[in-house]
Design a protein around this nucleic acid. Structure first.
Lengths: 201, 201
DNA sequence: TGTACATCAGTGAACGCGCGTTCACTGATGTAC
DNA sequence: TGTACATCAGTGAACGCGCGTTCACTGATGTAC
């Protein structure tokens, strides 16, 4: 106890601790509740400490966002695996994972898609957002009809899922219960994909 | 000049002036730049004045949002009329109007969809958000296939357009130029609707 | 038409708050020799 | 193995800022008679 929590200087992994603190704050208070000082307090550190690691709030947000995209990716993969192994089941999992993530982690989705994509593309190393996108891309791949391209199918599916999630989580679909929302979104995506695939066959 | 701008007390239409000021601020500085004090300053009035009309910032936001939904509706209608008079042309106009509005007035879309829908549904009189939705609904009506319902088609089209707009305006589709985005979105909606309508015919 | 009065709309000073940022500092760590 | 020293990470006090909110006020408006 003496060494563990009270080393005072040299926290050890403050950078990650601050990111974790940020995630917690987003879950509890949403995007508006996020500040450098709150993250520092939650991580048990003086309020000036975060500047050493992130520079400013935008830096922290980017780091939090990257971690959130990682969680997002995991959530989709896990949901996909829970559904089954064929192409449709995997895609259904993506839909469910996306929507559930939006419902359960509205604050995270807000930072993730609140920052412009350029904030990620600027980073030299391949960012976590791309990793998430790859999951979607792979799930869409089996449904690309002959006359089309993967990009077109991805954009279409992504737009549909993303729009549905945003509108549903902000209460635009009335009191549609979560379970039905799940199914409804999937049905829509399937209808969309069927139409694409049906054309050439 | 003496009477017109310097009556000091009793602005006359301060409520609307504050809403207009809010719209300007949203266009210039985005959602984060919006505050009661800035709206008051922009309207040329003391910073405590807005409280008389809106109570707090959320009240102002709702009023701004209502006005923005009105502009949104007009933008869609105008774009639809510019396209032509048949069903497809009208729907294409809706797509274009929606996307353009998102591109040109990102700040407005942020308040409009940043507030939960319940903020509008609470209002006793039919809110402007419903008026906007009616435009979408009417445009979708001719494309409801026999086995489906208007609601399903609306949700699907709305999700697709909304998601596309959000993702595109935050830079998620790379450097896709605006003109192509317009066409791409419309193509997608048409493909979606064709698939729905084609099934029964 | 005129007077008295209640109500309403906006003023401006003051408040406390949380914020990001700066700064000199200090304690811990790692490295050179 | 031990000493000296540079570097790094976190401290805590201080700063100014913009914010929402409160409050006693005052000037304009509308209404009753």
């Amino acid at each position: 106890m003496s060494q563990n929590t009270k080393t005072k200087h040299h926290h050890g992994d403050l950078k990650n601790a601050l990111i974790s603190a940020g995630l917690d704050i987003l879950e509890e208070n949403g995007l508006d509740g996020l500040s450098l000082r709150k993250c520092a307090a939650k991580a048990g550190v003086s309020h000036a400490a975060p500047a050493h690691h992130f520079g400013n709030l935008d830096g922290l947000k980017e780091a939090i966002s990257a971690r959130a995209f990682g969680l997002f990716r995991e959530a989709m993969i896990q949901a996909a695996e829970a559904e089954g192994s064929d192409d449709r089941a995997r895609l259904k999992g993506i839909c469910r994972g996306y929507l559930r993530f939006g419902l359960n982690h509205k604050g995270l989705l807000d930072v993730m898609f609140g920052l412009p994509a350029s904030a990620f593309l600027k980073a030299s190393k391949v960012p976590d957002e791309s990793d998430s996108y790859a999951v979607l891309r792979e799930a869409c791949a089996p449904f690309v009809p002959e006359g089309s391209t993967p990009e077109i199918v991805e954009v279409q599916v992504w737009s549909l899922i993303h729009g549905f999630t945003q509108l549903y989580t902000s209460g635009r679909f009335g009191d549609l219960p979560e379970k039905d929302a799940d199914q409804g979104l999937f049905d829509q995506v399937i209808a969309l994909l069927d139409s694409l695939s049906a054309a050439p066959s």
